[in-house]
Design a protein around this nucleic acid. Structure first.
Lengths: 254, 254
DNA sequence: ATAAGGGTTCAGTATTGCGGAACGACTATT
DNA sequence: AATAGTCGTTCCGCAATACTGAACCCTTAT
């Protein structure tokens, strides 16, 4: 599947190690980052000064930070997606209509990446951010996608990433997951019962193209104490599935 | 000002050259990108396979593309700014209220970077995207920032980037720009009369912190044939400046 | 079948990234 | 005011590794 690079460019890897370090530390000086990454500070300095010169990082009074220029790559990649432009307004509407947090996710390299988040003043605050990656087996959004992927792709993804336990509720057994995916196919939507974040429940529906390819999934999430009863088993699922339908319809006319 | 790197990491630079190439070509194969960049294809292959392995690019049936994972860096950098979270809702409101395109810009490395765009169904479509970089002297947003920067910073920025002519209306003379900035300080807002995009006019107001530092600027843009008369000289400026005021007020309470 | 085109691999060469140590700028401490 | 500590920056020799052209393999078209 993922052919390992034969002539890997080590410095390219290191470049992103440095950037990731900056992100984790929320900005850092040379020495701080060097100890964090366990790399000589002269090495870190070389990378940081190069990246600063190329304007990918900013030096703000002694601290290096990731530059906003990266927004360009993100926006470019996102707009290239089939679903983003079409799904965005519906995801926003879903958040406003239900008063909850809504999300749009796509699969990339066997993991889920959030493309957009619909917000509402009544919704709970969650730390997921656009671009964040999650495992597919531990979220409703991911399971909705897995349920619509060919079996061999699902196998390959599970082989690659395993089924890490994110919370006590995460499904970590392949057979159990298979049964779950079966149920999702029949129901048409996926459930996440605190499998990714404790105290958070989530309902998700897949976006499937006219040619039966999953393009992504959308969801509505909320606190467990609010997501229960028919609100959780009917009202929210209906809203999410209806939104997914609208998106699928709009996709065919474009 | 910008200390040139003494030990530049060439491969770090090349990494972004490759990524930029992918962006320009909207995705490409190894050979295509190699000829575009005028680099041996084995070299390009090394970079692309490494980046793919690290999950920064995606290989989609023979074509390499920039991955959506970059959204993470962009969102991180943006949320780190002082203005984004506070200004975003106001910029959205500004777009809806006036039925035009609105924007939020900050300065980085002497250039402007768009952080957010407020849209409205009635607004014209413009190709600016979040993360896009523009010169500060050729946009209302940029001039609003320049007018609130210390003179020596303005000088340094102009020394570094010059005053390239983006459209026939772009100000390319330093004295003329100085006079313009003077006027902006008095008026409180900046005007862009087709200086960045032909057929497009724009009104912008700076966002200034309590300690008199410019944090960015917001704007409303529209077609020249609609942006004229008192609508252009009063209505829109009033709306933009009021929004800037609200943002500045909210900034102090946080 | 065969040619064409693109992706991938290989291995030799010298470029260049690496990292320890020294230097300089700045701050805090007494 | 002197000094110790901290951090960013620079320097330079050595070894690692990025670069490249050519060969190889695979798929597609004719």
């Amino acid at each position: 599947m993922a052919g390992t690079a034969r002539n890997p460019v080590k410095s390219a890897r290191t470049t992103f190690t440095v950037l990731d370090g900056l992100k984790e530390l929320n900005g850092a000086g040379v020495t701080e980052l060097a100890t964090h990454l366990d790399v000589p500070k002269s090495t870190v300095h070389s990378y940081l000064s190069t990246l600063e010169e190329e304007e990918w990082v900013v030096k703000d009074d002694g601290e290096y930070h990731i530059g906003v220029r990266f927004l360009e790559y993100g926006a470019h990649a996102r707009s290239r997606t089939d679903v983003y432009e079409i799904a965005k307004p519906e995801v926003d509407r879903l958040a406003k209509d239900t008063g909850n947090l809504s999300n749009l996710l796509i699969e990339e390299h066997g993991r889920g990446v959030y493309l957009h988040r619909g917000e509402d003043s009544r919704a709970i605050q969650v730390n997921t951010r656009v671009g964040t990656r999650v495992y597919l087996h531990s979220t409703a959004l991911g399971k909705a996608i897995l349920a619509n992927l060919p079996d061999r792709r699902v196998e390959a993804i599970l082989d690659r990433h395993g089924l890490p336990e994110v919370t006590p509720n995460t499904i970590t057994d392949r057979a159990e997951l298979a049964a779950e995916l079966e149920g999702i196919s029949e129901r048409g939507y996926a459930i996440d019962d605190e499998e990714q974040v404790q105290g958070l429940r989530c309902i998700s529906a897949p976006i499937v193209s006219a040619s039966d390819r999953v393009l992504g999934s959308i969801s509505v999430s909320g606190p467990t104490h609010r997501f229960k009863g028919t609100y959780f088993t009917e009202t929210i699922p209906d809203s999410v599935m209806e939104a997914a339908n609208v998106i699928e319809l709009n996709l065919t006319y474009s």
